[in-house]
C-alpha cells in the first residue's frame, strides 16, 4: 500500500487536482449556468420559429413580387424547401445549427454565416465604443457625485441621468444629427468607413452613433454607480474603518467603496447587453451602418426567415454568454468567490 509506483502517484495527483478543479465553486457555477442556458436558447429558437411561421404571406411571394403566378410561387417554394411542414423544416434547421450550418439566405442565397461574418464586426465595434465611452464618463461623474451626496455635482448628475433615461435613443440620435450634421456640419450624418480605410475615418463615422447609444447607457450606469457608492459610504462598516484610520475621503471612496461597487457595475454592464442590441437595430438604421441590426431589420421586412432565425439565435447566445462571462469575471475578480467561503 505504502509503496505505490511514481506513475500511479502522479496519476492520482492529477485526478485529485481535477477533482478539486471540478469542485471549485466558480467552475460549478459556470456549469450550472450553462446547463440552465441551453433550454433558454432552445426556447428562443422555437419561439422565433413559431413567430416567423405565423407570418402571413410567404417569402417566395415577397421575392417574386405581387404579379407572380401561383405556379411560379409554388415552384420557388419547392426550390427553397418552403413547401415542407413547419416542424420538418425546424428539425432540419436545428440539425444544421448543431453542426454549424446556419443555411442560406432566402433572399440572396448567400450562406448566413458569411452575412453574419460581414455584418457582426461593425455592430461589435459600435457597441464596444459606446460602452467604453460611457464608462469613461460614468466613473468620474459618479465618484464626484457620491463624494458629496445632494451636492451640486450630485444633483446635476441626477438630473442628467433622469433626462438620459427618458430620452429615446432614436430621438437623441436625430437631435445629434440635427446639431452636428445639419446646424454645424462637422461630422458625417450617415455612412460607415471600414477600419481598413483608416482608423480616423472609421472613428469619425462611429462618433455620432456611439454617442447616441452611449449617452442613455452612461446615464444608466451613472445612476447605478452613484447609488451604490452612496449606499456604501453611508452603510458599510469597512468604510467607517477606513475613515477611522484617518484615510482621506477621496481615498475611502475610490479604494474602498468603488472597489466594491465595481462588481455591481460589471454585472449591470453585462446584463444590459440585451437592451443594447435592440438599440443597435435603430441606430444602425438611422446612421446607415451596415451592422447586424440593419441586416436583421432587412431580413424581417423580406420575410427571410433563415437569416432572422440565425441572427436572433446569435443575439440570444450573445446575451447568455455575456451573462456567463459576467459571472465568470465576478468569480475571478471577487476574492470572496475566488477562494470560496472557508470560514463561518
Amino acid at each position: 500500500m505504502s509503496t505505490s509506483t511514481p506513475a500511479l502517484g502522479a496519476d492520482r495527483r492529477v485526478s485529485h487536482g481535477l477533482a478539486r478543479a471540478l469542485r471549485s465553486p466558480s467552475l460549478r457555477l459556470i456549469g450550472r449556468r450553462l446547463a440552465a442556458a441551453i433550454p433558454v436558447l432552445w426556447g428562443v429558437t422555437l419561439l422565433t420559429f413559431l413567430v416567423l411561421n405565423i407570418m402571413p404571406g410567404s417569402a417566395a411571394q415577397q421575392l417574386l413580387g405581387a404579379d407572380a403566378t401561383p405556379e411560379q410561387v409554388r415552384q420557388l417554394e419547392a426550390e427553397l424547401n418552403l413547401d415542407q411542414p413547419a416542424w420538418v423544416r425546424y428539425w432540419e434547421w436545428l440539425q444544421g445549427v448543431v453542426t454549424g450550418d446556419l443555411g442560406n439566405s432566402i433572399a440572396s442565397g448567400q450562406p448566413v454565416t458569411t452575412i453574419i461574418g460581414q455584418r457582426l464586426p461593425v455592430s461589435v465595434e459600435l457597441v464596444l465604443c459606446a460602452i467604453i465611452v460611457s464608462l469613461a464618463f460614468t466613473v468620474p461623474l459618479a465618484l464626484m457625485a457620491a463624494r458629496r451626496p445632494n451636492g451640486i455635482v450630485d444633483r446635476l448628475s441626477m438630473v442628467l441621468s433622469m433626462t438620459g433615461l427618458s430620452i429615446a435613443n432614436y430621438v437623441f440620435a436625430l437631435v445629434l444629427v440635427v446639431v452636428f450634421a445639419v446646424i454645424f456640419p462637422v461630422l458625417p450624418a450617415i455612412g460607415f468607413v471600414p477600419l481598413s480605410d483608416g482608423l480616423l475615418g472609421n472613428l469619425r463615422s462611429l462618433i455620432l452613433p456611439a454617442i447616441a447609444i452611449g449617452f442613455p447607457l452612461f446615464c444608466f450606469y451613472t445612476r447605478f454607480l452613484r447609488g451604490d457608492l452612496v449606499e456604501q459610504m453611508r452603510g458599510e462598516d469597512y468604510v467607517v474603518t477606513a475613515k477611522a484610520k484617518g484615510v482621506g475621503p477621496w481615498r475611502v471612496l475610490i479604494r474602498h467603496a468603488f472597489r466594491n461597487s465595481l462588481f455591481g457595475l460589471l454585472t449591470i454592464v453585462g446584463l444590459n447587453l440585451g437592451t443594447l442590441i435592440g438599440a443597435t437595430v435603430i441606430i444602425e438604421q438611422i446612421f446607415a451602418l451596415p451592422g447586424i441590426g440593419q441586416e436583421l431589420l432587412q431580413a424581417i421586412n423580406n420575410r427571410d426567415a433563415v437569416v432572422v432565425q440565425a441572427i436572433v439565435l446569435l443575439l440570444a447566445v450573445v446575451v447568455v454568454v455575456a451573462n456567463l462571462i459576467t459571472d465568470l469575471l465576478y468569480a475571478v475578480l471577487d476574492p470572496r468567490i475566488r477562494y470560496g467561503q472557508r470560514s463561518a
Partner: peptide
C-alpha cells in the same frame, strides 16, 4: 419562470419587431 426567462433573454425590441411584422 423558464418561459419568462426565454422572453427576457430575447432582445425585447427584436421580438416586438418580428411579431409586428408577422401580424402586420
Amino acid at each position: 419562470m423558464r418561459c419568462l426567462d426565454v422572453l427576457i433573454a430575447f432582445p425585447s425590441l427584436v421580438l416586438a419587431l418580428a411579431i409586428a411584422q408577422s401580424l402586420g
